[in-house]
């Protein structure tokens, strides 16, 4: 065997455990879901194997699914914008801080030590009728009766921001941390104000990080299921809740498979567009 061919094989040998895991844990189950999406649910709840287009026809033509999908994308979009607006200043502060950067990053990671469900449910104790916020407002005499703050679209977005903000901050931080600070000094020495130096130099250079954080927040937000279930009202469902209902409540695995593939296709298309114009390298840095 020549040196060239041995060198060509080496990466594949090193990658084989990861590739095996990805094939077995991602592509094979995905293949099952694709097959399932063409089956039918019978009246008893059992599945009828075969090649039927009914589920796809229903998923693609029924306005109910389209509306919920659009609402899901809207909620994910708002969440992403809020995360960007809140996350950028925080990331800038961490990136420009001297000495205590490690502590600040550790604090940023702290929420990940607590279960996502617990973090989501904590809002009930904060915003509930007998929660902390209402108690304080009543205690200081601002209100007489507790305000109903929970179980609406706003609290769903709030819960999502709480969950996704660290992802945004980390991505923006990685981007800002890689920018040479002397560039801002150079801009200042050339007559730019601090604000101009930020908007003309730092912000454009950090946009890839912002875009990577935005993509992560959007994809994770659009695929969420727990937050609308815990913090949403009767009509605040997102697309993942439809998948849950089809599979669990209606025992309609074939339709649930078609719906989950539909969501995957929409979010996959977004990732492909992102990759086409911005590349995945920044995202990898942020995740790393």
């Amino acid at each position: 065997m020549s040196v060239e061919s041995r060198e060509a094989r080496q990466p594949w040998i090193l990658l084989s455990p990861a590739l095996t895991a990805i094939i077995l844990l991602l592509f094979v189950p995905l293949g099952f879901i694709v097959v399932y999406s063409f089956w039918l649910r019978t009246a008893t709840g059992a599945d009828q194997a075969g090649f039927f287009l009914d589920n796809w026809q229903e998923a693609l033509t029924d306005s109910f699914y389209r509306d919920i999908l659009l609402n899901t994308l809207k909620i994910a979009g708002i969440t992403t914008i809020v995360c960007a607006l809140m996350g950028y200043p925080a990331a800038y502060f961490i990136a420009r801080s001297r000495g205590n950067k490690a502590i600040l990053l550790l604090l940023l990671m702290l929420p990940f030590w607590i279960s996502y469900i617990i973090r989501t449910m904590s809002w009930i104790n904060i915003l509930g009728v007998s929660g902390a916020l209402n108690s304080v407002l009543i205690g200081v005499g601002i209100i007489d009766e507790p305000i109903q703050m929970l179980y609406n679209e706003t609290t769903v977005i709030l819960g999502l921001v709480h969950f996704l903000l660290p992802f945004m901050i980390l991505n923006v931080f990685v981007s800002l941390d890689g920018i040479d600070e002397t560039l801002e000094d150079a801009a200042n020495s050339l007559g730019a104000t601090r604000w101009q130096a930020f908007t003309e130099v730092t912000l454009p250079l950090s946009l890839p990080g912002l875009a990577a954080g935005g993509l992560l927040c959007f994809v994770l937000g659009a695929g969420t299921y727990i937050t609308p279930l815990v913090l949403g009202g009767p009509t605040d469902a997102m697309f993942a809740n439809l998948v849950f209902e089809a599979i669990i409540t209606q025992l309609n695995w074939p339709l649930g498979s078609a719906l989950s593939l539909m969501l995957l296709a929409v979010l996959g298309a977004l990732v492909l567009i992102y990759n086409r114009y911005l590349g995945m390298a920044q995202l990898m840095k942020g995740l790393g």
Binding site: P234, A237, L242
Partner: peptide, 9 residues
């Protein structure tokens, strides 16, 4: 069950 899923939303 399917109809309720819709009405609920």
């Amino acid at each position: 069950s399917k109809m309720f899923g819709r009405v609920q939303k």
